[in-house]
Design a protein around this nucleic acid. Structure first.
Lengths: 195, 195
DNA sequence: GTCTATAATACGATAGAC
DNA sequence: GTCTATCGTATTATAGAC
């Protein structure tokens, strides 16, 4: 059983992750987090000495989740198309939140990329988890350099769809882009037979 | 000849636009703008009563530029492929800045979308100028609903490419995505002959 | 009309109470 | 070890000097 401190830390990280997603990192204050956790405003500093440290903890927590999910999928997935399509479906399933808040990974990269190169590295690592996973899947279908290329393309489609859906507040944009991505995927999978 | 006030306003808007792009809207303070313009810190308020008003002026200025550019292209462009390809080339030409700061339109939508719905409408209008222009070009090739779909797709590719290039600080990502977009465009243009 | 000194507030961080 | 009262700074915005 984890101690009181551990549970407090985890609770703060969970709340911070949610607020960083919905409001952005810069626009989220210690006060916001304090209200939602019930801790005193300044108290959060006891658990996390700085806001940057807090973001790093949030990033670690999220990456843990992403890694577990994708690892699971690597085991479960059958043919490459089914495996790759699953990530398209994940995006589509979250269309509502994407239209409201954008992609949790993409928006964080955007925000931190402008002013905080050090912290952006954390955000980029989140992106990289997905890019590498996609690349590995495409390697079952394509030569290495093309696999990398295709992984970038699919990720770009997803990020672009999320950004536009967010800009227009239209979940339908994600759905339409998901269909386009599936069409694109199916063409690749039929042209290049499983190695 | 424009009066002193007019020139001052224009100078402030120009500097603000640049800083909003490179640092983000939230991270840019009146002090930053004051330093770069040579005006006193608080003086900017004489010309723009609030930061929101300043952003609106920046948005208007940018949109004027975009509209003029695209209107010019509409006149000059020959076949639909050449016309559409030109926007891909524009993106590619700016690969360096895209990798450093992201897309000026996309990043602004992302930032304002989280916390400032009213201001985001300005940013979305910038996006819409390009979306509508693309849609009009695709109408020369495709039925109306597909034209809209394809415009969204091309814009999503561009935004996704910019976001990833920014995340990875890699202009090459824009180049590779531009090539992919050209390939995609050429297929559409050969399949569907000019109406 | 143009600009500057100053106010009011919210932020992240600290020092020290329990 | 846990939490709270407080500090210094930076922000936008204003009041009023030139």
């Amino acid at each position: 059983m984890p101690g009181k401190g551990q549970r407090a830390r985890a609770a703060i990280v969970e709340v911070a992750s949610d607020l960083f997603y919905r409001q952005g990192y810069g626009a989220t204050s210690y006060a916001d987090i304090a209200v939602r956790t019930g801790f005193g405003k300044g108290n959060i500093h006891y658990y996390f000495n700085s806001k940057e440290e807090l973001l790093k903890a949030v990033a670690e927590m999220r990456m843990e989740k992403y890694r577990k999910l994708l690892e699971q999928w690597s085991l479960e997935c059958g043919p490459p198309y089914d495996c790759l399509e699953r990530i398209v479906s994940l995006f589509e399933k979250n269309a509502g939140d994407l239209a409201k808040y954008g992609c949790p990974i993409g928006t964080l990269n955007d925000e931190l990329g402008k002013n905080n190169p050090e912290l952006q590295e954390e955000a980029r690592q989140m992106m990289d988890i997905f890019l590498r996973w996609l690349e590995a899947r495409f390697r079952a279908l394509l030569p290495p350099d093309e696999a990398r290329d295709h992984a970038e393309q699919l990720l770009a489609m997803a990020q672009g769809a999320a950004l536009l859906a967010h800009a227009y507040r239209d979940p339908g944009l994600v759905k339409r882009q998901a269909d386009a991505a599936r069409h694109w995927l199916s063409k690749i999978c039929e042209n290049e037979p499983h190695a």
